[in-house]
Write a protein that binds this DNA or RNA. Structure first.
Lengths: 140, 140
DNA sequence: GCTTGATCTAGACCTCACTCCAGCTCGTAG
DNA sequence: CTACGAGCTGGAGTGAGGTCTAGATCAAGC
């Protein structure tokens, strides 16, 4: 608590959890799954010490996951980065494909939203008029 | 094949699957889980016959699911409708809460999109300039 | 030194939303 | 009549994405 953040501070797993919104369980899980770019350094006592690098990467991961990128793709991306320079075109492709999926997802959600809004309108109107008729009452 | 659609046509499970995009497995599963409003009628031989009513309901269900409503909520909604008139306010509430979640989801996705787009831009620029430097290469 | 709380490991377990299977029946085309 | 595909049931299995447990260790404060 109250630890200064001097830019290249090493963080404990708990602190990283706090900053990324991932649970400590999830952080260890991601590491086991090879989703991190470099292996995490450890203290002499074996505790993980994350660099701001790791945290930045994790923050990107969180955004990608949040938008539905599967862990497998994340892992592939991490592997590309791990391989070092030279495959930027592949990384770009991976991200761009995902961006298109996100766009499609947004469009789909907007359509859902409008269907739901329409139905909400139906009920709202029904309520405003008082009990008019058994709205969709197949028991009738 | 080539069956006419005379508005109150009874449909087989396969036809409903086709029209809703749900698998026949999913349709039976939804029924077992109590997600349908009325019980599905059967032929003398025990085959399901869906009414256009059922199909409309399922189409709404699909939109709700697509936008992330859990099956449990869908079930609750179905129960409210099954109970008949009188609880429209509750139904409205349920839908409206969901609509708000969808709105939040859209906003979150838009934020993800912009993060991704930014990263895509970073790579694109890097590629346009030729190999400038090890973009995020922690092995260095 | 002792207590307390954060971390460690390996591995079991969980939820969700289906999906598939075995073994049977139905119904239509030839 | 025979074939064959579509449908039936109950229950087991799947895959993604974590979450939790047990039992031990580490590190900081008193």
């Amino acid at each position: 608590m109250g630890i200064a953040e001097t830019a290249d501070e090493q963080l404990s797993i708990g602190e990283v959890a706090e900053r990324t919104g991932l649970s400590v369980h999830a952080l260890r899980f991601y590491e086991r799954e090879g989703l991190l770019v470099g292996r995490v350094r450890r203290t002499s006592g074996g505790r993980r010490r994350y660099t701001p690098f790791d945290v930045d990467w994790l923050l990107i991961c969180v955004k990608l996951r949040e938008s539905g990128m599967p862990l497998a793709d994340l892992k592939q991306f991490a592997e590309l980065v791990r391989q070092g320079p030279g495959n930027e075109a592949e990384r770009l492709e991976l991200l761009d494909v995902h961006r298109q999926r996100v766009d499609a997802q947004i469009r789909a959600l907007e359509e859902c939203r409008s269907v739901i809004a329409w139905k909400v309108g139906v009920y709202a109107e029904h309520l405003a008029r008082g009990e008019a008729g058994g709205l969709w009452d197949p028991t009738a």
